[in-house]
């Protein structure tokens, strides 16, 4: 009875209250889309434009997914870009070897590149996980160091030059549109995002991850194998980063040690903006995906205003991040205060 009589406004309020952070992101996206529609409709709302966006964001989107997993355990992964470039450079060398005289590739080449690439990413992730769990190095330092190490290996392997001149078939395949509409990059991202969503919300592993992130001590006393969980988490993060690297390899049609170097901090920014608690234990993939979309839309939208320097984007990112945190501070602080007082009773 009560529910039926609820006014639409009250219903919306209830929905909003159930996950304020998520709705705030959605509202921001809608407001921005309306703004663009009013000012630059034709230049933004075209299939081509959306396809371009969809083929670009998976690079850092995939890396962000990995960072998100690590942050849920209370850690962080600052090595994603290093892992991505390391993978893409090794695979570029492989492609170079496989490219035949006619500039083509054997049929098994692309599956092989993806298979090996993911394996390399997994190995790199396991390395991070061992540093974090077995050697107890704080994750921020361990992954910072390993990130530097992987980047260093890239530089050492390439002397800082780009690896290119391999067959264009690779790039062309990844840049295909499925049914002429959906870019392959987007498809890879969606597959990975669904996989991680499934992992977090439908499997035992996901529940354990949130618990571990909430309290490692309580997890130990509940019989969870913390070390294995952490190693698996960083492994998945490494796999995400490797996929990101393979997409970069296709988008630039080359690999270089310093590609995407801004992505490291950008990924952390996206994940936090997506509502993941940097202390661990809290965060949803929906928030992170929305944050990725929001940032890509902001960036592309601003590019449609030639008079505005595209460099303003980083200003807006930083601004949005701090704004969201301050908003959370005000709403959560008031509710947290009430809750705390109630608890004392």
């Amino acid at each position: 009875m009560m529910k039926k009589e609820m006014t639409p406004f009250a219903r919306f309020e209830k929905m909003y209250a159930s996950d304020r952070h998520l709705w705030r992101l959605i509202i921001m996206i809608i407001v921005w889309m309306i703004f663009i529609a009013l000012t630059r409709f034709s230049k933004f709302y075209s299939i081509l434009n959306f396809q371009t966006m969809a083929s670009q964001f998976p690079e850092f989107g995939l890396m962000s997914l990995g960072v998100m997993l690590c942050m849920i355990t209370g850690g962080i992964d600052l090595s994603v870009v290093g892992v991505a470039n390391f993978t893409s450079i090794l695979m570029a060398f492989l492609l170079l070897n496989l490219t035949n005289a006619a500039g083509g590739l054997p049929g098994y080449a692309i599956p092989l590149v993806f298979g090996l690439g993911i394996l390399i990413g997994a190995a790199a992730g396991i390395f991070n996980g061992i540093l974090v769990s077995k050697f107890n190095i704080p994750p921020i330092l361990a992954t910072m160091g390993s990130g530097e190490l992987f980047t260093g290996l890239c530089l050492a392997l390439t002397k800082g030059n780009a690896v290119s001149k391999f067959s264009r078939v690779y790039s062309r395949t990844i840049n295909n549109k499925i049914a002429g509409l959906v870019p392959v990059q987007l498809l890879i991202f969606i597959v990975m995002a669904v996989f991680i969503w499934f992992l977090l919300s439908r499997t035992v592993f996901g529940t354990k991850l949130y618990m571990l992130g909430t309290s490692a001590t309580a997890a130990k006393f509940s019989g969870l194998r913390n070390d294995r969980l952490l190693i698996k988490t960083y492994m998945v993060s490494g796999m995400c980063a490797a996929l990101g690297g393979l997409i970069m390899l296709a988008n630039y049609n080359s690999a270089r040690a310093d590609y995407g170097s801004v992505y490291t901090l950008q990924c952390v920014l996206i994940v936090v903006l997506g509502g993941v608690n940097p202390n661990g234990g809290k965060g949803k993939i929906s928030g992170v995906v929305l944050a990725i979309i929001l940032l890509r839309m902001l960036e592309t939208g601003i590019n449609r205003f030639p008079s505005i320097s595209s460099y303003y984007i980083s200003l807006i990112w930083g601004g949005v991040l701090i704004l969201v945190m301050v908003l959370n501070y005000f709403t959560e602080n008031s509710t947290r205060f009430i809750k705390r007082q109630m608890l004392q009773q």
């Binding site: 952390v268 460099y311 303003y312 984007i313 980083s314 930083g318 601004g319 991040l321 701090i322």
Partner: peptide, 11 residues
């Protein structure tokens, strides 16, 4: 905060 501000300063 410093991630955000670093982005703002760059911007």
């Amino acid at each position: 905060v410093t991630l955000g501000s670093s982005s703002v300063f760059k911007g």
